[in-house]
Design a protein around this nucleic acid. Structure first.
Lengths: 78, 78, 78, 78
DNA sequence: GTGGTCTAGACCACT
DNA sequence: GTGGTCTAGACCACC
């Protein structure tokens, strides 16, 4: 649980918020700039956290639009 | 001399500052974000102005580094 | 073939060198610092290129040791 | 005063420069790479020296940003 | 002396 | 005004 890097910790925090149902399907997660301010990390670190969540299928990132909770499809585990 | 569009006017202003020798070779011109604030224009306007200056060979834009006064080389127009 | 980003172009170049058999199994590919100098890009760009090649299974990166051509295993396509 | 190890001697030198007020609050101390060159020592030695100064509360090290003179707070020893 | 993470801030492309 | 790429250079961990 106690991830060793900043981006893993941030990803874990976001994962919890997602699992708690904080974000609705059409509602974007916080922007990179917002997370940057909120967590006091660089944008790069925010992007790595989001990238990690995208790679594991938790979120979907859309250029120019934002990050969204992934919707279940035929491969969905949940 | 009185350009008709916002980006042409901004380009003209920057051209004057360059010709006045305000920027040293290794010193970048103001960033897009800075010009946006200083002139109260949109980022698109700033980008068009810089693009215009680059197209005419006045400046060189380096991705991730900034805009710089073009150095005279064999292709120099001036 | 003409990739649009710097890291994709660098990855393509490295892929060709690998396929041409330039690197032996135990011989590391050029270090990040070396590629940085050779190609005039930032270390970040070099890392993204190597990361891309690692993700596609072309190379294996070992912390503190270097990048190596991936050895065929049971999942190998070639 | 004559420290027995290389890193203690380097730390002592840096401590003197700090106490002489050579570094302003927002100005980072020399980077590890720079000290390495200037003093002709290994990176490990530099890192140990900085670690020692951080442990005694003289400096604060910020990952990716540099080493800074510690600002007095409620926990200040001096 | 290598790769790994991080900061800070620039320009680029898309909605 | 969002995400995408890139530069430059710092500290960290490993071989």
């Amino acid at each position: 649980m106690s991830a060793t890097t900043a981006y893993e910790r941030l990803a874990a925090t976001l994962r919890e918020r997602i699992e708690a149902g904080e974000f609705q399907p059409a509602m974007p997660l916080p922007s990179e700039a917002r997370l940057q301010e909120e967590h006091g990390v660089s944008r790069n670190t925010v992007r790595r956290a989001y990238r990690l969540l995208e790679d594991e299928g938790t979120i979907v990132i859309r250029h120019g639009a934002g990050a969204f909770v992934a919707q279940p499809d035929s491969d969905a585990t949940a």
